[in-house]
Simulated assay, not measured.
Amino acid sequence: MLAVALVVPGCSVVDAFPDGSSGGAPAPAVDAAGALTTLDTLPVKGRAPKTGYSREQFGQAWSDDVVVAGGHNGCDTRNDILRRDLVEVTYKSGTRDCIVATGTLHDTYTGTTIAFVRGQDTSTAVQIDHVVALSDAWQKGAQQLSAEQRRDLANDPRNLQAVDGPTNTQKSDSDAASWLPPNRGYRCAYVSRQITVKALYRLWVTQAEKDAMSRILHAC
C-alpha cells in the first residue's frame, strides 16, 4: 500500500495515512487481500529479549532530523502529526504554523471526538501513538537497524497516529496479539498499517501476532 501525500500549511509534505485517509476522517475500506499478501512475506520468529531497549535507541523524541516525509521541514514530528490528524486547527503565534495550539480529534481508536488544547495539564488528552510500538519493534528486528533507520521508524508518519491519551497508555507496547483498538471499525486499517510498517523496516511478527492479524483481515 502506498502512502498518500498531504500538503499542510507552513511546512513541507507530510504523509497521510497509508490507507488514504487524513484529517481525522473515518478510515476507508482496506485492501485486506493485499495486507494478507504482505503479512505472508514477514518472517515469523519468537520475541527477542528486551535487553538494551530504551527510547533513546530511537533518537531524540520527535526529531526533525529524519529522511521520512516531514523531515527537515522545521517542525517537530509531534506537531506534524497533530496538524495532519486534527481538524479545526489553530496555531501558536510566531511559530510559522508549526506548533498546534488547539484542534479537534475524531479519534480512530475509540470513535470519539476529543478537544485538544495545548497546555501542561491538557496536552496529554491527545497523544501520538507509534502504531508499531518502539519496544515491540526493538524485540522484532529493530536492534539490527542502524541508528538512522531507528530514528526514521520513530518519526515515520506511516507509523504515527494522534489518538486518545488514556487509550494509548492502555496499549503501551502491545502487539496485535494482545491489544487492538476498541473501535472495531478501525481494526482492519490498524492491523494493515502495522503490517506496512513492519514490511518497510524489515521487522518480524510472532506466530500469535500473525494469527491475530490474519483473523482481523479475514473478517474485513
Rank of each mutant, 00 (worst) to 15 (best):
G70S: 15
D97V: 13
D76I: 01
P26M: 11
D76V: 04
T122N: 01
P26Q: 06
A69G: 02
V100Y: 03
A35P: 14
C75W: 09
V67R: 07
H130Q: 06
V132F: 10
P9A: 14
V131Y: 06
D19P: 00
E56R: 14
V100C: 10
A25E: 13
V66H: 05
C75H: 10
Q120L: 09
A69C: 05
D64K: 09
T112Y: 01
T37P: 03
G23R: 01
A61P: 00
V8N: 07
G59P: 09
G59Q: 04
Q60V: 03
S123D: 06
V8G: 09
G59L: 08
L39F: 13
I99N: 02
D64C: 09
D31H: 08
D19W: 12
S12K: 02
A16E: 08
A125P: 14
T124S: 14
A16S: 10
C98D: 08
C11Q: 05
A61T: 00
L105H: 04
I99C: 14
E88T: 13
A33N: 15
V89P: 13
G111E: 06
Q60P: 12
E88R: 15
T77N: 05
K50Y: 10
N73M: 14
L42C: 07
A69W: 07
Q57L: 03
T112A: 01
L36G: 14
A115S: 04
V8S: 09
V66L: 07
G59K: 06
T122W: 11
V126A: 03
G23W: 00
G59S: 04
P9G: 09
D40I: 05
H72L: 15
P26H: 12
A29C: 15
T108F: 08
F58P: 04
A125Q: 09
P49S: 10
R96N: 12
G94S: 11
Y91N: 12
T38I: 11
A133I: 00
V67P: 04
P18S: 05
H106Y: 01
D121I: 04
L39R: 11
G52P: 07
V67W: 10
Q120I: 05
A27P: 00
G74M: 13
R47V: 10
N73Y: 08
G20D: 00
T110W: 01
A133G: 07
Q60F: 04
S21T: 08
S12F: 03
R83A: 13
G94D: 07
D15A: 06
I81S: 14
L82C: 13
V132Y: 05
G111C: 15
T95A: 14
V66P: 02
V100I: 13
D15W: 00
S93M: 10
G74T: 06
S12H: 02
F116N: 10
T37S: 11
D31R: 06
D64F: 06
G10V: 12
G34N: 08
V87I: 15
C98Q: 13
T41E: 05
D85M: 07
A32G: 12
V100A: 14
A61I: 00
N73W: 04
D97I: 11
V87H: 02
D97C: 14
L39P: 15
K45E: 10
I128G: 13
H72R: 14
T122H: 03
D85F: 01
G46T: 15
